[in-house]
Design a binder for these strands. Sequence first.
DNA 1: GGCGAGCCACAACGTAACGTTGTGGCGTGG
DNA 2: CCACGCCACAACGTTACGTTGTGGCTCGCC
Lengths: 299, 299
Amino acid sequence: MRTYLAVVDAGQFQLAAAELSITQQAVSKRVAALEQDLGVRLFTRTARGVRLTIDGQAFLPHARDLVRAEERAAASVRPGRRALRVDVIGRRLGPAGLLRAFHRAFPDTELDVVTLFDADAAVGALRAGTIDASFRAVTQRLPDGIRSVRVFDEPVQLLTGPTHVFAAARAVRLAEVAGHRIWMPGLVAGAEWTAYYDELAAAFGLTIDQVGPHFGTEPLLDAIADSAQLATLVGEQTRLVWPADQGLRRIGLRDPTPVYPHSLVWRAENPHPALGALRDYLSPGEVDTPGTWAPGWSR
Amino acid sequence: MRTYLAVVDAGQFQLAAAELSITQQAVSKRVAALEQDLGVRLFTRTARGVRLTIDGQAFLPHARDLVRAEERAAASVRPGRRALRVDVIGRRLGPAGLLRAFHRAFPDTELDVVTLFDADAAVGALRAGTIDASFRAVTQRLPDGIRSVRVFDEPVQLLTGPTHVFAAARAVRLAEVAGHRIWMPGLVAGAEWTAYYDELAAAFGLTIDQVGPHFGTEPLLDAIADSAQLATLVGEQTRLVWPADQGLRRIGLRDPTPVYPHSLVWRAENPHPALGALRDYLSPGEVDTPGTWAPGWSR
DNA sequence: GGCGAGCCACAACGTAACGTTGTGGCGTGG
DNA sequence: CCACGCCACAACGTTACGTTGTGGCTCGCC
């Protein structure tokens, strides 16, 4: 592909060969091989060089895209001067939405999104410089040199099937939920979400059922859609993807509205220019709004 | 890259190898070579397969972009079911802007833009099916099976330097221009632009100077920017790119306003689905507005 | 705790791809 | 009309790459 582009820019094989530091015959072979692969002729050969055919012209922007993509791919792992690398809990959860909004606001900022296993891994990666920022709920004191700011309180909602008692309600009071079963498989001991739901359950007497293996969100949503008893909790910004609309409903919670406290965490000495832009874009978040509840460790 | 993606999807080398129909050792070698090229480790090897490292995660979307780009590139020259291929006179002229607008309106439509030498080549390519549509000024009767519709009348403007007599005017009457020298190098005998300016000059007694070699637009713009006498004609939609802002001015023309009649030309039997969308988007254009002038052959 | 299953890495080997050298054909310009 | 410049074809050598064979490692199971 680069040979093809070199020929396009040079207008002839020999000059392109010189720029690529290979022989003209090698260029001829490469172009011939590419043409054979594609099944079309890319150049018309003339006595003074080559001219692009129509197919060659149509192919040109795609070829440039391809080498650009290759360069971006290589740059994404090049130490130093690489894209801003941000860790989010999940690509469909609230923080990922914040990142998308940031990217819309600053389209020129190169952004790579990764997902680390837990907060400890995130802090380690921040210190090592392998990531530049992490969206986390800060449940305990961070080590020296690691900074955090609470950027976003995400309301937590009930997710129910169409036959559930609360299905018709737009919002229910948190106290009303106390007697109902909330099914949340897949919570890992020690993980930040687990800490959150533990404290939420303890504070309002909720029954949060963590038993049973977690087969992924699809079976979970299937089960909830079919059940009049089961419900689960999701963040307001969570983007659900289920096969078809199974009549799932989001029911707001109030008095108080439980909110999940997302923080941005970063290493103080990180010089990445886009990191400052991200911090400026996010902070200060509206947090601890009246009528909301957040865990004690978030204050 | 495909091997890397296969490993990501499979979660282990052996399964990926089976899907690629090569041995596990070959996969191991390919991944190792890629890691060596990039200078980072993409996978952490475990006893039950592999897991992506942080670098590997950041690399993933770029790798997918890359293979998508490769597929689009190959598709752009695949006969049958390829992207809509449209010929425009120049990428910076009015029709290219129409195409950009069409692409904004229908972002899902794959579009390839090419530039053919002249109208005869365009008609030939339309008949051969190597292009699907062409923006041209139709100066003579088209052969059977080739249709055209006039889609866009583009006002023609004067382009002058800051010291030109007309530099301060927003618009001048066409009759006023009669005595002034208009420099248009590079017009090819028989080309449609030449036919247009010939008739324009004849109709209003303009002095259009075609002598002198054409060294490209940059020297032309340089010369015009520095001269108090020289001016040239450009389409209203033409996107000029000059090194710095040299104080070039666009001066409108009126009483009448000369317009360049762009038509869309296509082959009647072409079944490409996007071709209909393009025709629907473009037609009917506002043409022959009162107060404008177009050549006799455009009616 | 030992053993086996599963997975990846290393080494040796053969083949096929690729680049180089050498040469010929063709169109163009002096 | 000849000579120059450009691209294509052929033969050859080297490099790269995939395969076969083997070893080491981790995890799970008895």
